[in-house]
Amino acid sequence: MKLSKQQIEHLYQFTRQHFVEYYDLQTELVDHLANAIEAKWNESPNLSFEDALQMEFKKFGVFGFMDVVEKRQKALSKRYNKIVWHHFKTFFSVPKILLTVSLVFGLFFFIKTFNPNEVIIILFGLILIIILLELFQKNKAIKKRKQKTGKVWLFEQIIFGYGSFSGILMLPFHILNSISNSSIQQNDYILFGISLLSISMILTTYIIVKIIPSKAEDYLKETYPEYSLVN
């Protein structure tokens, strides 16, 4: 006996009730449960759908689907980090490296000439504002889409939540702020290091806030073969 459309829909609901928010994981778990229930029915045809479901769900252990969700998140974050790294490397290879080098030297001479702390505060303040604006806009778009399709994709959320980077983005701001003016301006090596670090952070920000979200659709299609099937 096969599961009906309603029963499949019920399984989707069941996964949602058990804290599986993401459609991609829901789909995989629904198929698993459905297979298991159908196999149960082959052994004992009189078993009710609900009983069979409970028996199968128990096999996932006391934490239910939570462990699966958590590990999936980890796996996809890894994939995301790889994508970021891939884009980052392009800024250090021909031809983009020319841009990177000029940016680093530009910042270097800028900090050397002007008061570094003020420059840095203005620079990172600007970046922060841009990120917040983008974040606000994108989240609105995701919410809108969820309302329309009823689906949330885990990788989509990682892309628009900027992976685990959002906290790190402000790190150089804190580091630079804690270094006193005089020692920075006296040592060209430190100054250069700071310029390189700052530009690297700005490029990373640009990658995760601009480049990757603009290609989100492609990355989602690559990650989820079912993406174009259901959207």
Partner: peptide
């Protein structure tokens, strides 16, 4: 499975089977 997929050791395909999607 998800870890192996993230390490590019596995690839995925999705198909509609019976009333559902199968990965």
């Amino acid at each position: 499975l998800h870890k192996l997929e993230a390490e590019d050791l596995l690839d995925v395909e999705v198909e509609r089977v019976d009333n559902r999607l199968r990965k």
